[in-house]
């Protein structure tokens, strides 16, 4: 999709803003007085181009171009701005919602699209595979060290559930949105189920109501949490969760899990091991920063 170019003659359509503030809790985005606390707080903004205040400004002003901007994808959903906004704007929730609206309109980043394809194929956003040469990846050894079965009770243990996932993707139109077509050899038979299901109007509704992988993931997470002894990252996220209103709790925890997963994918490519986030982060960050400053 092409970018919507901002024009000097402002065309203030409000279309996206109106869609966004259908959620009463997000209506307060219009109260933003552009203090800049969010941009100043944003850990991503110190390294990337995201300018949180400007994202909020565009949406408050009714400039639809915001959904085609890269900025909304650069948010790490750390919730720092959310905590600090003096006008009590749930900034991070606004950004997440903007991502939903963007995706629905086809504004996606290729890596995100790729992740959905992996999901469709494997039932995992972050696949748990073997290393080259068929050697067992470290994750299963790690599981075993905690006394868990080598293979989690997900699609890995139940390969036929992949079909269910694909069916759901098809029923919700998500496959079309992300441009995924089942490979002809695939056992999935979406067309047969298609006739039975009413295609829901909102994609997220379905996704939110049926957190497919949730039970399985939870147990994985718990185990990982036990293992990570002094993970500051985690204690912060715990605090956050308890601070959030119960109504939005579900939504957020789901989203967070996804983003965490994404993170760990990245790490895998750059580092050999570990699902332990905090230590990995701290070793990685300074390196990146150094590299950048050299370039500059």
């Amino acid at each position: 999709m092409e970018k919507i170019q901002p024009n000097i003659i402002y065309s203030i359509s409000n279309a996206i803003t109106e869609e966004l503030i259908k959620d009463e809790a997000l209506k307060v985005v219009r109260a933003c007085f552009q203090c800049g606390t969010c941009t100043g707080s944003c850990p991503s903004g110190r390294r990337t181009a995201i300018r949180t205040r400007q994202v909020i400004r565009r949406i408050a002003l009714g400039l639809d171009e915001v959904i085609s901007s890269d900025d909304i994808w650069l948010c790490s959903t750390c919730y720092t701005c959310y905590e600090r906004c003096p006008r009590s704007i749930p900034v991070t929730d606004v950004i997440i919602k903007l991502r939903n609206l963007a995706t629905q309109r086809g504004f996606m980043k290729p890596p995100h699209r790729a992740v959905t394809h992996i999901l469709a194929k494997t039932g995992h956003g972050v696949p748990l595979g073997t290393q080259k040469g068929g050697e067992d990846n470290n994750w299963s050894l790690l599981r075993a060290s905690y006394g868990l079965p080598n293979i989690p009770p997900t699609t890995l243990s139940h390969p036929d559930a992949i079909t269910d996932i694909q069916t759901l993707m098809h029923a919700t139109g998500f496959d079309e949105l992300v441009g995924w077509t089942p490979d002809p050899q695939s056992p999935a038979a979406p067309s047969s189920i298609k006739s039975q299901s009413n295609k829901p109007s909102s994609l997220e509704d379905t996704l939110e109501k049926k957190p497919i992988e949730k039970p399985a993931e939870k147990s994985v997470e718990k185990a990982a949490e036990k293992a990570a002894k002094k993970s500051t990252d985690k204690s912060a996220s715990k605090k956050k969760k308890s601070a959030k209103k119960t109504t939005s709790k579900k939504k957020k925890s789901t989203k967070k899990t996804t983003s965490k997963k994404k993170k760990s994918t990245k790490k895998k490519t750059s580092k050999k091991k570990s699902s332990k986030k905090a230590p990995a982060d701290t070793t990685e960050k300074p390196k990146r920063a150094k590299r950048r400053s050299k370039k500059n």
């Binding site: 901002p6 000097i8 003659i9 402002y10 203030i12 552009q34 205040r53 400007q54 400004r57 565009r58």
Partner: peptide, 17 residues
């Protein structure tokens, strides 16, 4: 009316009808 000014929040010139 076509009004012109600066949108100092977004740091760009602005025109609006």
């Amino acid at each position: 009316l076509l009004i012109r000014g600066e949108d100092t929040f977004l740091g760009q010139p602005l025109a609006l009808n």
